[in-house]
Design a protein around this nucleic acid. Structure first.
Length: 647
DNA sequence: TTTAGGG
DNA sequence: CCCTAAA
């Protein structure tokens, strides 16, 4: 910093203070330098000439040397294209690993190379000046004097006299400078062949900027770019314009995007044998993915760090730069920078939180009230688990959905099962049912039950209407009643009984639905549906018809043929119902059916049906368990089937 | 998975 | 309706 100030404060721009020397010495022993230095940017033309840089081409090098004192332990994990170096900073002791792509490394090396050159030039110039006794008056002067003839140029390249071995460490410091104010080193590089062999500067290139980038022997330095070029580069890299004039910032951002491998075309080239070689697409893509994954993890942290360092840079160094920028602009840049970082962060970060929110939303979508339980699930888990809802909920919901779907699925009317809210008269049965819920029932169960009741409620409401409008006077014709049947699966027991009355299909009766679907948690955690869904007459008819067609005992087949649309009627249910029907039919006293039904207030099963049942039973030699043939033989007039009410 | 039967 | 054994 002091050096910078010294330089900048020199009105005549004399480049005289010890900073230069120190910087020069930095080449041989970088760790001795602790202060950032501002250097003037020069452009190396293709013919090897050094063109004086414009004002806005001033670059700051000190930033790169900021962490000179850091101890770096290089652990190369030599893979194919990805190599890692773990760098431990003495200040924090934190150890981070990250992978860089070769191309990125190449860029960094190129930068390093260029810095090296600059330093070398400065050194040379200083020597020259000292020897000549001609003072330098400004950066521009320096640059002007930095003509190519004053520097060793070979093959169009500025030859670096720096020992190669030191380059990696320089590169490292260069690389980590900006982002590690808080200590963790998030990036790692490796000593690449390109660097070590660096007699020539090699760098990666934005292919689409080739024309704009100064190029010498296929080597391009990011630092050589002017503001305008940097802007263009920025645009290419980030896909948006920038008004930032801070070159440092631009370069940093671009470099960062490179190291993060987030951008296309950033890793098109790699350095090999001092030449820029086009990278294979597979390589770059694959590595880029891996790289971005890793870096995305680090970005959060790095953002903070970066912020700090950038604050330092912007307020400290940049302000002192000769570059014609006002402090307000610096502030603006800083703002932009921050926002830019945030934007990038937004893009990269979503992983965990996004998933979390996603799962949460999903669960809420299904059952808002149960979101709490979902929160506990799958924090930090990835999609597969986070999508899992509590088994109970899933079950009940599935049930709900299927029920509603099925209730209408068989018919021609397909009604979306969602958001059909029934707003009709309040249901008393439900209230009572809820009131007497099993105490063991958890809150979640209650809620889900409520939900279920609601949905099925709506569904049944609708189907009831349909049923009424379509309810045929003659129910005894299975085929004709079939479609009707399928539309009225969900009906409240009480109403069912009313409807079950054969002759009076009771359209007036407010067939309010309300099936008491009560799900009871099982010891195993499963859900048992503890729901009594009364059999409708249609269902009974269908069952009888199915039995007559397929034979008793082939419940699955009957279920498949006649009850395909009744998801809530399992084959076991059919079997049970048939069993009951059988009992009823054999216990039935033909003359008394009406009495029976009235007596128990239950919907009677039409005698016709019962007779048919008995007929079928006898056909199949099925006899109710406790039915004595004598009773049957006697005509069964005296036996009152109380169980008929079970229908 | 389906059937049959007990509860 | 649920549960379970048996096939």
């Amino acid at each position: 910093m002091e050096t910078v100030v010294g330089i900048e404060d020199n009105d005549d721009g004399r480049f005289e203070d010890s900073g230069v020397d120190r910087s020069s010495s930095a080449l041989s022993s970088p760790k001795q330098i602790s202060n950032p230095i501002v250097y003037k940017l020069v452009r190396v033309e293709g013919d090897g000439k050094l063109v004086p840089a414009t004002d806005d081409e001033v670059m700051e090098v000190g930033d790169f040397l900021e962490y000179e004192n850091s101890e770096m332990h290089v652990v190369t994990n030599t893979g194919q294209s990805l190599e890692c170096i773990s760098i431990e900073r003495s200040s924090s002791g934190k150890l981070r690993l990250e992978c860089l792509e070769e191309a990125d490394l190449g860029k960094l090396n190129a930068k390093l190379q260029y810095i090296e050159q600059i330093l070398q030039k400065v050194k040379e110039e200083e020597k020259h000046r000292i020897s000549c006794g001609s003072p330098v008056h400004s950066h521009e002067n320096i640059d002007s004097q930095c003509s190519a003839d004053k520097f060793p140029v070979m093959d169009g390249k500025v030859q670096s006299e720096t020992p190669c071995q030191e380059i990696p460490s320089i590169a490292s410091s260069f690389n980590y400078t900006h982002s590690n104010q808080s200590g963790s080193i998030d990036q790692c590089s490796r000593p690449s062949e390109g660097v070590i062999e660096s007699g020539s500067s090699a760098s990666a290139v934005y292919s689409n900027l080739k024309s704009d980038i100064s190029m010498s022997d296929g080597e391009i330095c990011l630092d050589k770019l002017s503001i305008r070029e940097l802007h263009e580069l920025f645009k290419v890299t980030f896909g948006r314009e920038t008004t930032v004039k801070d070159k440092q910032w631009l370069k940093r951002r671009i470099a960062m995007s490179l190291t993060n491998s987030c951008d296309v075309s950033a890793t098109t080239f790699i350095i090999k044998d001092n030449k820029i070689v086009r990278k294979f697409e597979e390589d770059s893509s694959g590595n880029m993915n891996a790289g971005s994954l890793i870096s995305s993890e680090n970005m959060t942290e790095e953002d903070v760090n970066f912020k700090d360092s950038s604050a330092v840079d912007a307020c400290g160094i940049d302000d002192n730069q000769v570059v014609s920028e006002t402090r307000s602009e610096n502030g603006l840049e800083y703002e932009n920078y921050q926002t830019g970082q945030r934007a990038a962060k937004r893009i990269r970060r979503p992983t965990k939180r996004y998933i979390e929110e996603l799962s949460e939303n999903e669960s809420r979508e299904h059952n808002p009230r149960l979101s709490i339980s979902n929160k506990t699930v799958g924090f930090g888990h990835v999609s597969p688990t986070s999508n899992v809802r509590p088994a109970r909920n899933a079950f009940s919901e599935a049930r709900t959905y299927s029920t509603r779907l099925d209730s209408l699925g068989g018919s021609n009317v397909q009604i979306p099962c969602v958001s059909r809210v029934r707003r009709s008269r309040p249901r008393k049965d439900i209230a009572s049912l809820m009131k007497f819920h099993p105490t063991g029932m958890g809150e979640a169960e209650k809620l889900s039950n409520k939900l279920l009741e609601h949905s099925s409620d709506a569904g049944s409401d609708f189907s009831d209407k349909v049923l009424k409008s379509r309810m045929p006077a003659k129910f005894h014709q299975p085929s004709s009643s079939e479609p009707v049947k399928e539309q009225c699966p969900v009906i409240c027991p009480i109403e069912l009984r009313q409807e079950l009355r054969p002759k009076r299909a009771d359209p007036s009766g407010h067939t309010s639905d309300d099936n008491n679907i009560v799900t009871v948690p099982t010891a195993k955690g499963g859900m048992r549906r503890k729901h009594h869904r009364a059999w409708t007459l249609v269902e009974v008819i269908k069952l009888v018809e199915g039995v007559s067609r397929c034979g008793a005992g082939r419940w699955s087949e009957i279920k498949r043929l006649s009850f395909a649309s009744y998801s809530y009627r399992t084959s076991v249910d059919l079997k049970d119902k048939w069993r009951n029907l059988l009992k009823a039919s054999f216990a039935l006293a033909p003359a008394d059916e009406g009495i029976n039904s009235r007596k128990h207030g239950t919907a009677p099963i039409p005698e016709k049906i019962l007779l048919r049942v008995r007929e079928l039973a006898e056909m199949n030699s099925q006899v109710p368990p406790n039915y004595s043939s004598s009773q049957l033989a006697s005509g069964g007039g005296s036996v009152h089937g109380d169980r008929s009410g079970y229908l």
